[in-house]
Amino acid sequence: MSSLSKLRVRLRVNGEEHEMLVPVEKTLLEVLREDMGLTGTKHGCELGECGACAVLVDGKPVLSCLALPVELEGHEIMTVEGLAAAGRMHPLQEAFADLGAAQCGYCTPGFLLAAKSLLEQSSDPTRDEIKDALAGNLCRCTGYIKIYEAVELAARRMRSGSETAPEQAVLYGR
């Protein structure tokens, strides 16, 4: 039975405090999407198998389908909606768009957040480090390659602080 009693939960999401009453058995995924209207976080499997629902908690990717909101009080939660700042897309978002790393786009929010966490630890990750960091996110469309290339392009742009154009080799394949 779903509970009739609710818990008062204070969550900090994308820099803003939210206070709400939610049944304790609702996952963070359900609360983000249904109670807060943040539908950028995607529902894939509800079982921790696909990474589509990944959000950042204190900068680290976690699966919102396997997290109770009440457990995350006092932590900083970031969803894909929090990535763009001051009306500008995050370099990762720009690179994903430029390179076609988002095909159907359904897995994209989870990948973007996992990649953001990686780039915060390592500004110039190797291909293997990128694969490792993204190994918990399933994608059924891209074959992952464009996603790696986009993370590399974003890292390059972030390091140089400029709009590096995609390399021809990246755009055209070899």
Partner: peptide, 9 residues
């Protein structure tokens, strides 16, 4: 073990 996100949790 598992996946990066699950290892974080």
């Amino acid at each position: 073990a598992a996946s990066p996100q699950l290892r974080n949790q």
